[in-house]
């Protein structure tokens, strides 16, 4: 039982937690949160047992508060590992948030709450300084209030959209999306958008592929911009070019479409509606984090109080101190 209270066990558990975290960050992102939560639960128990076994920890108020708060931080961090969601999504201007489109998800609890989120991506602007330095992002989103009315909100890199505890932040990832409509043989119309790689980062590779709903035919799409939308040595603003054309390659035959134009594919027709922009969002959710912060603040208060009492007991400029370790060592003379 004494081993459960030892600082060596703390070190072992911390090492295991660190190794798992590093592995999950650098090798395999799909490492289960449950696995990482285990050493954290162990740390919480280790600290609790240490408080029970170590009289010094119980009799010194500041130290007791510090260790109790640390135990709480470890326990809450374990809960956070199980419940946190870190994800990303690309949203086309005018489209509604669809949780099924989310990628890179962590956490194993509370995913269902994402399905209750509703908002529509509106237009956005991004300012650039000379030297391609990205500055402010102003992304408009429309949120439906409880009265059914749609309200607008501006979201930025550090002005998140917060819904049900989920925080949506704009990222540097954004680009162009073509709005396509496909009419099949039966006259059924399917509409959707195809996103091209982030712009201007992937300016040279503005290409993607698309498969017609009723055939297995995959067509190659290439977005042809007449000129870059940026000026490298001047201020500029991200905008959607009006004259971009879509090059569609089917069976090695290239067709160039302008907005509004159609072409036959298989038995149906493809219509290039218009070019829009898409915005990439980072999504974060961790119900434990506010509590971890509160516990950390309590910990630092306890620690500060303990240190204050300890330091106040003897003046700084006293050369002789009555501390055990100072007197018991042969080197101290």
């Amino acid at each position: 039982m004494k081993f459960l209270a030892s600082i060596w066990l703390t070190l072992i558990l911390l090492t295991i937690a660190a190794a798992l975290l590093l592995y999950s960050r650098m090798v395999d992102e799909t490492v289960s949160g449950k696995l990482i939560a285990m050493p954290l639960v162990g740390l919480c128990l280790n600290l609790m047992v240490a408080i029970v076994y170590n009289r010094k920890l119980r009799t010194q108020g500041g130290l007791l508060v510090f260790h109790l708060a640390l135990a709480a931080v470890a326990g809450l961090a374990a809960f956070g590992q199980l419940s946190a969601v870190i994800a990303s999504i690309e949203l086309t201007e005018g489209s509604e948030f669809d949780p099924n489109q989310i990628t890179v998800m962590n956490g194993s609890l509370n995913r269902d709450t994402l399905h209750r989120i509703r908002f529509i991506q509106g237009p956005f602007s991004i300012n650039y300084k000379p030297g391609m330095t990205r500055r402010e992002t102003y992304s408009t989103v429309k949120i439906q209030g409880p009265d059914g009315k749609w309200d607008e909100q501006i979201v930025g890199d550090h002005y998140p959209l917060i819904i049900n505890g989920y925080r949506f932040y704009t990222t540097s990832n954004k680009g162009f999306a073509t709005l396509l409509s496909y009419t099949d043989k039966a006259g059924q119309i399917s509409t959707g958008s195809v996103h091209f790689p982030g712009y201007p980062l992937n300016e040279a590779v503005q290409a993607n592929s698309w498969t017609a709903p009723d055939t297995a035919k995959t067509v190659a799409l290439w977005l042809e911009l007449s000129a870059p939308i940026y000026t490298e040595d001047a201020q500029w603003q991200f905008s959607v070019p009006k004259d971009a054309s879509l090059v569609v390659t089917v069976d090695d035959v290239r067709t160039t479409l302008l907005p509004g134009q159609v072409m036959p594919i298989g038995g149906g027709t493809l219509r290039y509606g218009e070019l829009r922009a898409w915005m990439g969002y980072g999504i974060y959710y961790n119900p434990a984090m506010s509590w971890i912060l509160a516990a950390s603040l309590v910990a630092v208060c306890g620690l500060g109080w303990h240190c204050f009492l300890k330091i106040r007991s003897t003046p700084w400029d006293a050369a002789q101190y009555s501390l055990k370790s100072s007197l018991e060592n042969p080197l101290n003379r």
């Binding site: 912060l293 950390s296 620690l303 500060g304 240190c307 700084w316 370790s325 060592n329 080197l331 101290n332």
Partner: peptide
Amino acid sequence: PATGALDELSARFMLVGFVFQTLMLIVGAI
């Protein structure tokens, strides 16, 4: 001062530093 007293002095500075280091991590997290 004697080595023992120096050891105590350095520990005091480390104690004060530790409080601020913990605060630094918390403020950084905020």
